[in-house]
């Protein structure tokens, strides 16, 4: 970080082109932010996983949360899910503090499987329907049928790729306001990746926002509206993707490599 004559700090590694003004979002500030962070800090012992994050995510967008491992992406997602409390600062989901009410409108897809392998697919469908009022059983069944997944199968018997698809179907069959997807296409074959991205696009709607946390930027950048770059627990870039492309003449992937050059 270097200090300019005004006493302002600019991170040296960020090219000027990346510090684009968030022009599109200014107009939408009137609509309530789906996810709002104010000076959000999370410390584990002496380590700040999030070192003061200020963020306002609008609804109706597909947003990429991009950053290298250890940048704080997963911590931010966990805070939004209400799995852990912040050390200081505030995080609000549609104006709600993380809690039972916010969990009703947040749909989370973790990186690894979080389902009991012994359950059958239709058992899990029943469970989601039981706990989530916004779960659409028809949508889930339709998607499972399209992939020819046997509802009576136990999860253990399905391949890893199929298990991940089932989890994705469960998460996207909810009519949530905020979808949090942690590395949805990591470790999955290209055909499955295609399916996953299409499912994400299909479920986009103006009332909700999809936040995709990943380091596989080249695969997802085509569907992103906005990109938020996170490094060492701080936001270094937050702008609409096409604006970034226009200004830098580079792909998001190339920009990422530049910003996070070791």
């Amino acid at each position: 970080m270097e200090q300019t004559q005004n006493g302002e700090f600019t991170p040296q590694t960020v090219p000027e082109t990346a510090m684009a003004p968030v022009s599109d979002n200014r107009a939408e500030e009137s609509t309530a932010a789906i996810l709002s962070c104010k000076h959000l800090v999370k410390q584990y012992g002496g380590n700040p996983a999030l070192a003061g994050v200020d963020l306002d995510l609008p609804s109706g967008k597909i947003i990429g949360l991009l950053g290298p491992n250890g940048s704080g992406k997963t911590t931010l997602l966990k805070l939004a899910c209400g799995l852990i409390p912040p050390t200081s600062g505030e995080i609000l989901i549609q104006g709600l503090r993380p809690g039972i009410e916010s969990k009703k409108i947040v749909s989370f897809l973790p990186e690894k499987t979080y389902l009991n392998g012994w359950m059958r697919v239709n058992d899990i469908l029943a469970m989601f329907k039981d706990f989530y009022a916004d779960f659409s059983l028809e949508t889930a069944k339709e998607m499972l049928a399209n992939l020819q997944i046997d509802e009576r199968a136990r999860l253990k018997t399905l391949s890893k790729g199929t298990q991940e698809k089932v989890q994705l179907i469960l998460v996207m069959s909810r009519r949530a306001k905020l979808y949090l997807l942690d590395e949805p296409i990591g470790g999955v074959d290209p055909a499955a990746r295609d399916y996953i991205l299409r499912t994400i696009i299909k479920n986009y709607n103006e009332q909700s926002t999809i936040l995709i946390s990943t380091h596989l930027i080249s695969e997802v950048e085509q569907i992103l509206d906005q990109a938020v770059f996170l490094n060492h627990g701080k936001i270094v870039v937050n702008a609409p993707v096409d604006v970034l492309r226009e200004q830098s003449g580079k792909s998001l992937d190339a920009m990422f490599r530049e910003v996070f050059k070791c």
Binding site: L197, Q222, I223, L224, D225
Partner: peptide
């Protein structure tokens, strides 16, 4: 958007 494989906003 679905045909093109892009975000409906785009």
């Amino acid at each position: 958007a679905n045909q093109a494989g892009v975000n409906p906003n785009t």
